[in-house]
Design a binder for these strands. Structure first.
Lengths: 307, 307
DNA sequence: TTTAGCATTTTGGTCGCCAAAAATGCCTTC
DNA sequence: GAAGGCATTTTTGGCGACCAAAATGCTAAA
């Protein structure tokens, strides 16, 4: 994930909001207000504000606080975007090593610590995450067992089958409640993606947007069990897709499907939306996701060649 | 869970197998064989065997190994059963404290360490488990947020709605494959429960059997995402139900439903089984589980009185 | 009265060492 | 030659001190 420091994370988020204009120029950015929004104390927020004003993304007035400047210096946007996507993650490496069969099924913590040069607690975090995402489990004695769950393209089908079972149903839950504001926000994002140049946008971003759309919808069911189940499989999916190339055409099908669903929901045609969602997902299943088919095959070939 | 020591855990499991006759009298219990079965090394197994022969549950012959005795000394059975269910668990206490509103929504690790007098690592385990089971999450800064997910009887409904979405569908998965051996085993258990005296059996046991039945079925779908989703909500359910009283009549309805499902499956009528499963679950939803209605209401009353 | 700015307190992560637990290898016995 | 018994090696978890990060309280300025 992003750098460990809370101040840095807040700073990044604020930077994004300022650059995209979510926070308008001239606004007074109050420490307490930000602290409340993110449910943290004022200290890391303050550090973030200082850092941002150093970079030139905020203007500081002594004893009055920080303000969003009317004009943002040239080039800053690119600089920050670049810096943001740079950080690579041990967890991703670990996952990839497993996906590509560079690890044995049974591993000791020691060997992992050595391989990735991790401290005890870092390793702990990593394994906890892998366990949470369902592809690693403690053996009864020493060592961990890595599960083959995410390795084959079969897992892809399984995930889509699972989503097919929960997503359309979630829309029909009695506690379902439309959030038009969130819906409008996602319409904006999806429309943006229709026009974006696939080659020049990080695929994680596109993937994340798609996943976020589905998660937002299922959240409206107001049944947290549906929501967290989807989040869970999406995390696993990300693991398999995170370096995939995105197929422009398929992406566009996906996005217009999403927009169609939003249309239906906004018109209050929930049943139709649910039905359309089912079709949308089966479509993805048939095509093996709009995204990762090639990569998935490549991966399996590689896995095979080592067996 | 049971005592931390691997040898002890193995010893307990073996004890159960010996007492219930799963391992027949006179059998030679080979170290390596047990070690393989549990995927551990011989050392803790050996320790377990020594411990059991000290208790008199195994007979030791020098340089030949350990054997299940033809007759087991009087009273040993009770003694061991008692000792087994005795161990109370911080995690359970913690969960109950939260369910009954004795904790605030935001807690620091320190306060929890103090309250339950835990070392840092114990606390870590506890929170990891709560997070895994979905009702606690780290705040961004210091502290944890406890989620209301498990608190209301509404959560009950939500869990059943979720199960309603996945369980019947799982039976119809293309990869579904009947395991007659497992099925027969569960038939045995369910029939046993039909006759059992509810008052004299620990409710956890009855609950666990029910959950195990459903988990066994969904596992036959061969889609691990269905399986792990069910396991997840079942863990949460256990949290809410673990001290409930069991209603004999409802239990019997539940068990005969289960047996009916097994019948259908054994006759190959999968679609009918799926349909019946749906009815079975909606029934439970209508009745608020065969088990915990009273308790759930009591709990909420208590929660209310403190607000 | 609100909020920034600073000082102080509290929290939780990190590190290294040590002991307990588990895994492994070898030798012996039946 | 298969398995138990023992010795040795390896792994892991616990503990405590330390330190950076976050939370909190207070003061002064607008």
């Amino acid at each position: 994930m992003s750098s460990s420091d809370l101040a840095t994370r807040i700073s990044n988020r604020l930077a994004k909001d300022i650059l995209t204009g979510t926070i308008e120029p001239g606004t007074h950015v109050a420490t307490q207000q930000i602290a409340d929004r993110y449910q943290v104390s004022r200290t890391p927020v303050r550090d973030a504000l200082v850092a941002l004003s150093d970079k030139g993304l905020l203007e500081h007035q002594a004893n009055r606080g920080y303000f969003v400047p009317e004009e943002i210096p040239e080039g800053l946007a690119q600089e920050i975007a670049a810096q943001d996507s740079e950080e690579s993650d041990v967890y991703q490496t670990f996952a990839e090593d497993w996906l590509k069969n560079r690890l044995t099924e049974i591993v000791t913590e020691q060997s992992l610590r050595q391989r990735y040069s991790l401290t005890k607690s870092r390793l702990n975090d990593m394994m906890a995450r892998a366990a949470r995402e369902g592809w690693a489990e403690r053996k009864e004695g020493y060592g961990w067992r890595l599960l083959p769950v995410a390795k084959t393209s079969e897992a892809f089908d399984q995930i889509y089958r699972f989503r097919l079972a929960i997503e359309p149903v979630a829309l029909l839950e009695p506690s379902f409640e439309l959030d038009r504001k969130v819906l409008a926000e996602h319409r904006r994002i999806q429309e943006w993606m229709l026009e974006v140049d696939v080659a020049r946008t990080p695929p994680e971003q596109l993937l994340a947007n798609g996943a976020a759309f589905h998660e937002a919808l299922i959240a409206m069911s107001n049944n947290p069990f549906f929501a967290s189940a989807l989040e869970r499989v999406n995390r696993m999916r990300r693991l398999m897709e995170y370096r995939a190339r995105v197929d422009q055409e398929r992406l566009q099908v996906q996005c217009s499907d999403h927009i169609e669903i939003i249309d239906l929901l906004e018109r209050g045609e929930v049943v139709e939306a649910s039905y359309f969602m089912r079709r949308h997902l089966s479509g993805a299943l048939r095509r093996k996701s709009p995204i990762a088919r090639n990569w998935s095959e490549e991966m399996e070939a590689e896995a095979h060649s080592q067996a």
